[in-house]
């Protein structure tokens, strides 16, 4: 599969990704987040074991791996979205600008205002397009001209031209791809630093997917993006760094998600350090 990984489909992104590979130099070394030995538990079940990796600022980091390898679980641990799940617990350290997100005095609301999330299924609120984008602004008490903020967010999400004449119409009338871009607009309207995306294109057709991928590339000017994807070509196209997870059975026959390899995307796909990564990306497994 690695050789089939098509980097030429969409040149703008491909060239960018290739640039990372050839340069081999970390251009943006600042890491905005850092995971140290992070394990996530659901009750007594350890879903993901011992993950250590950085999240580089203004870069796209992709998490790939087979189903059930814990990549979504790790992603949700980054902005404490697992909190409401009964029995969910995180050990190790998830730090954001050096602050432990799971420290006792950290308010998860403050965390989520800075680390936003886009979900697998487009989930606009059953409100108007305008109200969807304005929602986050209103709850976060952002004053000033709401209209300008809404236009800015929709423009950044490459949706403004398509919806500017029907801002008061229901968001549910939009197509799936438009809904997902609306969800991205809604997220960036509150100006988070990091945007987490949980398989944001899995419910979309290839054209809508291409639009979202272009958008991700644009967004790295202002934001740091972490994306979970099932689609290896997508990871190769859009990301600068890739983390490969897999599920392994331990001595007690219990399955755990493990981070196998983390490196620059070009390197991971062309010259993986780990045999398991190579098996996965060449399609021998998963």
């Amino acid at each position: 599969m690695a050789n089939d990984t098509d980097l030429t489909i969409r040149p703008s992104v491909a060239v960018h990704a290739a640039g990372i590979t050839t340069s081999g130099v970390d251009t943006a070394t600042a890491s905005v987040m850092q995971l140290r030995d992070v394990s996530v538990y659901y009750g007594s079940y350890e879903a993901v074991r011992g993950t250590t990796m950085p999240i580089q600022q203004n870069q796209v980091t992709a998490m790939i791996g087979p189903s059930g390898c814990g990549k979504s679980t790790v992603l949700r641990a980054l902005n404490r979205m697992n909190d409401p799940i009964p029995g969910a617990r995180v050990s190790g350290e998830v730090s954001f600008h050096g602050q432990d997100l799971y420290a006792r005095d950290v308010d998860p609301i403050q965390v989520r205002r800075r680390i936003g999330m886009v979900f697998q299924k487009p989930n606009p609120f059953p409100k108007s397009i305008y109200d969807n984008v304005a929602y986050g602004l209103r709850i976060n008490g952002i004053k000033g001209r709401l209209d300008d903020h809404v236009e800015e967010a929709l423009t950044q999400a490459a949706l403004w031209d398509e919806v500017k004449d029907k801002l008061r119409k229901s968001a549910l009338a939009l197509s799936g791809g438009q809904q997902q871009r609306l969800c991205i607009a809604r997220t960036i309207a509150v100006k988070p630093e990091v945007i987490l995306m949980d398989e944001p294109c899995s419910a979309l057709d290839p054209i809508a997917t291409a639009k979202i991928e272009d958008l991700m590339f644009e967004l790295t000017n202002d934001y740091t993006i972490v994306i979970v994807t099932h689609n290896m070509q997508q990871a190769a196209r859009v990301s600068h760094y890739t983390a490969f997870f897999t599920a392994e059975v331990d001595e007690k026959q219990v399955r755990h998600g493990r981070l196998v390899e983390y490196s620059q995307t070009g390197k991971l796909f062309t010259n993986p350090a780990d045999k398991r990564t190579e098996d996965y990306i060449t399609g021998r497994f998963g």
């Binding site: 979205m81 609301i109 989520r112 205002r113 936003g116 989930n123 929602y135 986050g136 997220t187």
Partner: peptide, 13 residues
């Protein structure tokens, strides 16, 4: 539940 999650992810109490 997706709606509750979306709202939560935007920092709503």
């Amino acid at each position: 539940d997706e709606l509750r999650q979306a709202s939560m992810a935007l920092g709503a109490r």
